[in-house]
Amino acid sequence: MRTPLSTVSGVLAVLPETNVNTDAIIPSAWLRTAKADLARGLFGARRFDEDGRERPGFVLNQGPFRTAKFLLSGENFGCGSSREAAVWALAQFGIRCVFAPSFADIFYENAFRNGVLAGIVDEATGAALAAAVERHCDAPDFTVDLPAGVIVDPDGHRHAFTVPPHRAAALIRGDDDIDLTLRHLDDIDGYFSAAKRDRDWLYTPTTDTRRQTP
């Protein structure tokens, strides 16, 4: 079970950039140990200078956005490296939902696998949300209502986002993907038995150890 996600309230931070890549979300320096403080590493090179001091211009270093729970960004969010630590860093920082007009494929999958919502908003909605943050920059408190598929801004306006129904349902239930797949074990084993017979050339080389160099 993952922590279910249904309705969450918190601060929305805006990073108005396109093609935010996973190297930017979590620089490789933070991937050198399994025990890194990924919350601090989030946008590491953007948030901190080379001496570890905060860069005041970066949104997550400013006022209420230090405790942001939601992030709004531009097209193709999460492109580049497959590093799931990008999602772990967002989650450890406290970000539960990311909204963008589009996401890179691997990041998108990684997000849902960690109970983080990657919601798609069109350009107009993104602009309206950013304007709402601007109007309420002292208390940019939003509510994400996943079952309803809306983001409620501080004025009470509702902004729609898109998420495939099966992904929303899985987040709300807190599904464990491996548990779900293991329910199909008979089918998987049946497939493999037949495939081994039909494509022996594909599977025997990995089980035959005689020909392999030590």
Partner: peptide
């Protein structure tokens, strides 16, 4: 190319959804 959760999924099930 997959993330670490899917690495785990492949190790446990030899499949990917």
């Amino acid at each position: 190319g997959v993330g670490t959760s899917e690495v785990e999924h492949v190790l446990a099930t030899q499949t990917l959804a």
